[in-house]
C-alpha cells in the first residue's frame, strides 16, 4: 500500500518533469536546439499565474486567470523567438544553448525582482481536496497533474504526426533548406513552436505551483527534466513523458530504499548510465551520419 502511495506521488512528480521535458522536445523537434531555460519558463508560468490569481496580487478568479496566463506565456515564447532566437538563424546549436542558459539567469533575476524570493503557492480550487480509491488517498492536484499531462502529450503527439502544421514543423527541423524549397515558412513555424513551448511551460508551471511551492530557483528543476528528455531520446514526445515518469518514480523509491546521500544521485546516475550505454536515448531516432 505504501509503495502504491509512493508510486502515485512519484508519477505526479514525474508528470511535471515530463511536461518540462515535453518543452525541450518540442523545441528540439522543430529547431534541433535545446532550450536550457525551459525550467525557468515553467517557473515564470507559475509566477505569472500566481500574480494573476492569488489574493495578495490581482486576485482574478482561477478559471479566468488560467487562459490569460497561458496566453501571456505563449506570447512571451513567440516574442523570445521573434526578437532573439531568430537572429541566430543559421548559427550553430551551441550558440542557442549558451543563449538560453543566459536567458535562464535573466528570467530568474527578473522573477526574483517582481515576485520576491520567498516560496509561494498557487491558490487554486483543487487545493486540499482528496480522492479515495480503496485505501489509497490521492491528492486532487496529483490526479489533475497526471490527467492533464497524459492528455497534453497525446494531443501534441497527434498534432505532430497527423496535422499539416505538425508535419511542416518536422520537415523544418530535418532539413531547413529543403523545407524552404517545399514552401514551408520555416521562420514562422519556429515562432509558432516557441509559443507552443511557452504554453506547455505555463501549464507545467501552473500544475507545479498547485502541487507545491515555487520560488525563482525552481527553474533549476529543469536539470532533472534533462534526465527525462535524454532517457526519452530528445526527439520523441511520448519518450519525454516516459522519461519523466521514470525519473519521477525512481526518486521517492530511491529516497526510501537507498541510504541518504546516495538517493538524490539516482536520477543523475540514471542519466549518465543512459548516455553511456544508449547515447541517443532509449527511444533512439538517429542512425550513422552520412556525408
Amino acid at each position: 500500500m505504501d509503495n502504491a502511495q509512493l508510486l502515485i506521488s512519484g508519477l505526479a512528480n514525474g508528470c511535471v518533469y515530463g511536461l518540462i521535458a515535453l518543452g525541450f522536445v518540442l523545441i528540439y523537434k522543430a529547431t534541433e536546439a535545446v532550450n536550457f531555460a525551459q525550467g525557468d519558463f515553467m517557473m515564470l508560468g507559475a509566477f505569472v499565474t500566481i500574480g494573476l490569481t492569488n489574493t495578495e496580487y490581482m486576485g482574478l478568479p482561477f478559471w479566468l486567470a488560467l487562459p490569460i496566463s497561458l496566453g501571456i506565456m505563449g506570447a512571451l515564447g513567440y516574442l523570445l523567438d521573434r526578437l532573439i532566437i531568430r537572429r541566430l538563424f543559421g548559427e550553430s546549436q551551441t550558440a542557442v544553448v549558451i543563449l538560453t542558459i543566459a536567458l535562464g539567469f535573466v528570467i530568474r533575476f527578473v522573477a526574483g525582482l517582481i515576485w520576491g524570493h520567498e516560496p509561494q503557492t498557487l491558490q487554486n480550487p483543487l487545493a486540499g481536496k482528496e480522492v479515495r480509491v480503496g485505501e489509497l488517498v490521492l491528492g486532487m492536484e496529483d490526479v489533475a497533474v497526471i490527467i492533464v499531462t497524459v492528455a497534453l502529450t497525446w494531443g501534441l503527439y497527434v498534432f505532430f504526426s497527423k496535422t499539416k502544421l505538425g508535419l511542416a514543423m518536422q520537415g523544418a527541423s530535418q532539413n531547413q533548406l529543403a523545407a524552404y524549397y517545399m514552401g514551408i515558412p520555416v521562420k514562422r513555424v519556429q515562432g509558432f513552436i516557441w509559443a507552443l513551448a511557452g504554453i506547455v511551460a505555463g501549464i507545467a508551471g501552473i500544475l507545479f505551483a498547485a502541487k507545491g511551492s515555487v520560488d525563482p530557483t525552481t527553474g533549476l528543476l529543469g536539470i532533472k527534466a534533462f534526465a527525462a528528455a535524454v532517457i526519452g531520446g530528445f526527439g520523441s514526445l511520448p519518450g519525454a513523458l516516459a522519461g519523466g515518469l521514470i525519473v519521477g518514480v525512481i526518486e521517492p523509491f530511491a529516497s526510501r530504499y537507498i541510504a541518504a546521500g546516495y538517493s538524490q544521485i539516482a536520477p543523475y546516475a540514471l542519466l549518465l548510465a543512459v548516455l553511456i550505454f544508449r547515447p541517443n536515448g532509449l527511444f533512439s531516432q538517429v542512425r550513422v551520419k552520412k556525408v
Partner: peptide, 18 residues
Amino acid sequence: IPGLEFGIFGVILIGFIL
C-alpha cells in the same frame, strides 16, 4: 539585490551572442 550579478551577466552574454 540578490541575483543581480548573474542577471547582468546573462544580459551581457545575450548581447555578445547576438
